[in-house]
Amino acid sequence: MLAWLDSGLAAAGLAVLMIVGTCYGIWMARRMKRYWPGADGLSGAERVTVVRAARRGERITDARLSAAALDYRTGIHAAAEEAKPVRWLLPVVLAVGVATAGWDAVYGSWGNAAASFIYLFLLLAELFWWPKRRAQLLSNVDRAALSPG
């Protein structure tokens, strides 16, 4: 959507969607396999059940799925720890985003400005909203995986 807004070309938006979607899909599948290797032994519906319950902090009574929830918890915590060293980069990217949004508002088209301000809003959410949500998710997966089942 941002590529379409920024360029004004639907084809650019579609190209970015296809390229980024494919790359992100491959990257996310590999990342999930690394952090949650036990997911391979579950069906798609079972994975959804485990993730949904874990993210909500709900107890899982099925012993097999409870073990998968513990494995999921370990992976979520490992992923959160791995992301900490690059958090310092967000304020730098935010400063660049503010400068870019200002430039686009003055010198760019309305699409450039809209894309820049949407990007800026998403960066602000990442910087201020996500840490609280991440802490809540980590607490929920702990509660779900470590509660007696």
Rank of each mutant, 00 (worst) to 15 (best):
L124D: 07
A95F: 15
L17D: 03
L42R: 02
D40Q: 02
P85E: 11
K132Y: 09
D104Q: 14
G44D: 11
M1L: 10
M1E: 08
A54Y: 11
I19W: 02
E82R: 13
A113H: 05
N112C: 04
A101K: 05
G57Y: 10
Q136A: 10
R47T: 01
A145C: 07
A105F: 07
F117N: 14
R47G: 02
A69Q: 04
D62T: 00
I26H: 06
L137S: 06
T49H: 13
A83P: 05
T49N: 03
S116P: 04
R56G: 03
W110G: 07
W130M: 14
R30D: 13
G108H: 03
V16E: 01
L9S: 12
W36N: 03
A45Q: 09
V92P: 09
Y72E: 03
R55K: 15
A29R: 13
P37V: 00
E46P: 03
L65N: 00
G38V: 01
A53I: 04
L123F: 06
R133Q: 11
G41I: 02
A45W: 11
G97D: 11
W130Q: 10
R34P: 01
P37F: 00
R134F: 07
P85C: 14
A145R: 03
Y119Q: 05
D71R: 03
L124G: 08
A113P: 06
V141I: 10
W27R: 09
P85K: 11
V51A: 08
G57L: 08
P85M: 10
A144V: 08
D6W: 14
A83Y: 10
T74C: 04
R87F: 10
N140K: 05
D71N: 14
L2K: 05
L89W: 07
W88T: 11
G75P: 02
R143E: 07
A78S: 10
V92C: 08
A101R: 09
A101W: 12
T100H: 08
A78L: 05
G8Y: 09
I76P: 04
T61D: 02
W110C: 04
A135L: 06
H77I: 01
I76H: 05
R143S: 06
A115T: 00
